[in-house]
Design a protein around this nucleic acid. Structure first.
Lengths: 266, 266
DNA sequence: CCAAAAGTGTTAACAGTACACCCATGG
DNA sequence: CCATGGGTGTACTGTTAACACTTTTGG
């Protein structure tokens, strides 16, 4: 079971994260009148035990026809030294007046923190929640898992930042900490299922790409070979549908050069 | 945005739900020694603001070739009197020694509470988390949405219990409270995508069913007509694959009786 | 010229669509 | 006997898989 908790792991109470406790009665009242006010105050005064909520990211990219995952190395126990998914706490504010950030915004923020990439450059979508009671040995932590795809041209930029690095998924590797292997398995299924969806397939290759490059990227993602001829016809359909268009230039590979294309915004 | 909170809505602090606050330093230490103990204690002592976490269910059934949703009526503001998805709080225990229940277990428990149905009789799977900051006007609440399919033969049993009732999705209806319409939309997409998956299709019809009944159920779920002849061939493939088998008896409908089948456990 | 990779074509099998037809039953 | 609906067949179409062939390049 995982909690990213990242570099500034547990014992560093970020002033932005720590605030007044959740729903203290003395914080109860914003501006509300009528019969609802009583119910509101009572609702907030009742203290349910609440779990810690984190966001974990499965960030993928395809480099050199090889599917890679962004991983950090934990510097705190538990699992100190082990690789893990990048993640962070969901910002909740005080829960009453300051409601904190949306789930998607939290994922985008963590992604930006770990990669330094501008928002919108990557595909980012929610996977599901993971919350087995013992998934974090320290306390009850529920994580909202997201998956993301970073365009190959941007991938080298993220490695420069501290901690994070690209790990090939095609080779033997040490297991991820917590239940992150389980999360990765679900994310991989989702990535494969949606590899050809608009918004995803466009991030598997550079902005300008050749048909063989796209085929190789899809092969890297799905893990199985794609017939060249059959793929070419699928690609021609994408051309006719207007999903891709020819781009200027040619791809020089040492042998016969290939035409280059780009995905159309629309 | 939603928080089910259900009959026993906010101001009734369930003794099973309320416990010591999360991660008080005085609760820090179970049995752990070595250098990890310090980090553990520090981690637990640091208090992050945590959101309330609930579980909301989109429970479907097909009755009389009509797709229906299980809904409750709220008896507390906000949205008093409005229909809503059944739901409840995730049990977390104290988060340290008592870790509470798994997410799937929470969903199964809420489903059992609202329907009285035995576990395993229904298909139940996680959808995703919904947590827009203002989805509940009272405070920050994150809900883990699940979707479920109840076999038609068991559906009449649930209406007997308090509050919950089946609402047809084919007719005009008042909107659900909070963001439950948004959750329902996602759940419907998922139901339609997985309607023919094993474990789902078997819950759309009674244990003994005729081919036309299954066709009608799928039509009710997807909302569009299915050709009889084409469906028959698909059904024959299911027969040959061993997914379904003939059952004794005939379906007497007033016209020509139809053969009855049942889904095979394997 | 040759190897390698890009690009093109051919074919069979299969699944989906649309529609026509027969058969069994209750009234 | 007849209307209704269960059950069956057929022709057309589009997609996929498998594989052979041609073209273009660098060495």
């Amino acid at each position: 079971m995982p909690a990213p908790l990242d570099p500034a792991d547990p014992p560093v109470p970020d002033p932005e994260l720590t605030g007044p406790e959740l729903a203290g009665p003395e914080l109860a009242g914003p501006e509300l009148a009528g019969p609802e006010a009583a119910a509101l105050a009572a609702f907030r005064a009742a203290r349910w035990p609440t779990p810690a909520v984190t966001v974990d990211l499965c960030v993928f990219t395809v480099l050199d026809a090889d599917l890679k995952l962004l991983r950090v190395l934990r510097d705190q126990p538990p699992f100190a030294g082990a690789p893990a998914l990048p993640g962070g706490f969901l910002r909740v504010g005080d829960g009453i007046d300051d409601r904190g950030e949306d789930l998607d915004a939290a994922a985008a923020r963590v992604l930006a923190e770990k990669t330094g990439l501008p928002d919108g450059a990557c595909h980012l979508a929610q996977l599901q929640a993971f919350g087995a009671p013992q998934r974090d040995p320290r306390m009850r932590v529920i994580t909202l898992a997201f998956w993301a795809v970073v365009p190959p041209e941007l991938a080298p930029l993220v490695a420069a930042r501290g901690g994070a690095a690209w790990q090939s998924l095609a080779v033997q590797r040490p297991p991820l900490a917590f239940d992150h292997e389980q999360i990765l398995a679900v994310a991989l299924r989702r990535l494969r299922a949606e590899a050809e969806a608009p918004g995803v397939v466009g991030r598997l290759v550079p902005a300008a790409f050749s048909a063989p490059e796209l085929r190789a990227a899809l092969e890297a993602v799905t893990g199985q070979a794609i017939d060249r001829g059959n793929f070419h016809r699928r690609f021609e359909r994408m051309l006719e549908a207007g999903a891709v268009e020819e781009a200027p230039g040619k791809r020089i590979t040492g042998r016969r050069p290939a035409k280059v294309y780009r995905f159309t915004g629309g």
